[in-house]
């Protein structure tokens, strides 16, 4: 591990990210844009919007970071730059940490902008601290990032990488509890939902946006999210092979 190599990698990844205007747009503008649309869609049911918007602030970054990271990592693999890096003295953890810092910073910007739009401009009430929602949003973005990093190992083209979005992310989103109460799902599906990391992101956000005390389960949710992120990171490090066939 070397802080020097980690920071150099973070700076390089951020530079690549900032160079691409559309990616910056996807990260910073699109989530807020979607929330504004949602606000008008629920024009006659403001209470519904008030219930789901705060959770969306934390869930959307998971999706955007998952997409951006899986493609960025795939590019690193297919462009030969990963092979070059692996022939150099860089530690794999330096690379992954560099990515984590760069995308973590991007995620923070994304969540803060979305929070300003939802709580500042659209004036959605927050039952608990907005800062806590932002913090869970960043954590969820980091989870999306490390999962994207991991699954990129199973794609050989960018075309395959985007397919993870409907195949891997969308199901999690559908059963996490946002659209249907999990207790009203078929039993087996509810069981699967419990095994999905995004469920705990939703629960943590839901607790933060529900009246009453937050409770100890909130910390359990955070623990599960962090654990899932660490496991994905470890799996990602395993798939980052120095020697390839």
């Amino acid at each position: 591990m070397s802080a020097h190599a980690t920071l150099a990698t973070a700076r390089r990844v951020l530079r690549q990210l900032l160079r691409d205007r559309r990616t910056v747009g996807l990260i910073v503008v699109v989530p807020s844009f979607l929330l504004v649309i949602l606000n008008f869609a629920f024009d006659s049911q403001p209470s519904t919007f008030d219930r789901i918007a705060p959770t969306m602030v934390g869930l959307i970054p998971f999706i955007t970071m998952f997409i951006v990271t899986s493609i960025a990592m795939l590019r690193e693999r297919t462009s030969g730059t990963l092979e070059r890096l692996m022939s150099m003295s860089v530690a794999k953890l330096d690379l992954m940490a560099g990515y984590a810092i760069a995308f973590g910073a991007a995620a923070a910007a994304e969540v803060v902008v979305a929070a300003v739009v939802v709580f500042g401009i659209l004036d959605t009430p927050a039952d608990h601290s907005v800062a806590a929602i932002v913090a869970v949003g960043v954590l969820s973005a980091v989870l999306g990032m490390v999962m994207g990093l991991f699954v990129s190992a199973f794609a050989t083209t960018e075309f395959q990488a985007v397919q993870f979005m409907p195949a891997f992310v969308l199901p999690q989103l559908l059963i996490c509890g946002l659209f249907v109460d999990r207790s009203r799902m078929a039993g087996w599906l509810e069981g699967i939902a419990w095994a999905m990391p995004l469920t705990y992101v939703y629960d943590a956000l839901d607790r933060l946006t529900s009246p009453g005390s937050i409770g100890g389960l909130f910390w359990l949710d955070l623990g599960v999210i962090a654990g899932a992120a660490l496991v994905s990171l470890a799996l990602g490090a395993v798939t980052l092979r120095r020697r390839t066939p």
């Binding site: 020097h4 150099a8 990698t9 530079r15 160079r19 691409d20 030969g80 730059t81 070059r84 860089v90």
Partner: peptide, 24 residues
């Protein structure tokens, strides 16, 4: 090691590429 196909970051400038590999 210089791979058969150029292995540098296409979205960065020449200097930025060399700054990164130089930093490593």
């Amino acid at each position: 090691y210089v791979t058969q196909a150029a292995s540098v970051y296409n979205d960065l400038t020449v200097i930025e590429n060399l700054q990164y590999f130089g930093a490593l």
